[in-house]
Amino acid sequence: MTLENVLLVSSVLFAIGLYGALAKSNAIMILMSIEIMFNAVNIAAIAFSRFTVPAGLTDTPITVTQQAVQRALTGQMLSVFVITAAAAEVALGLALVIVVYRQRGTVDVTDLTEMSG
């Protein structure tokens, strides 16, 4: 379980999510693919926090301060904020999808073309 292997998994998940977000015509399916992309980014952030040297430990001679110990988990903090923002985004996105369904009777994004052309 090295950093490169975890980043490989993260990149593959991101690519799968990207394919779903671009190639699907159902709005809910697109939202699900965006969630997969969020997960891939979270995995990468946590892997970096686990495998790389934190910023407080790079100078010589190495002094391990309490602040460096806490700041080593900055990648996990990023993941916490990404999870929170993703939760808010999916809630609002689904509310919008339901409103569109009530107005138009469809959630197929290829049929919602009033603003194009």
């Binding site: 990149s11 990207l18 394919y19 190639a23 369904y101 290829t110």
Partner: peptide, 30 residues
């Protein structure tokens, strides 16, 4: 709440382009 959709999760016309772009981006990241 939005059931009775015949299409379900069908793909749109960008399927091949999307697959190419996703594969290229994934390969670049790896």
């Amino acid at each position: 709440l939005v059931r009775d959709m015949p299409g379900g999760g069908k793909d749109n016309h960008l399927k091949v382009v999307a697959a190419t772009v996703a594969a290229l981006l994934g390969a670049l990241a790896i």
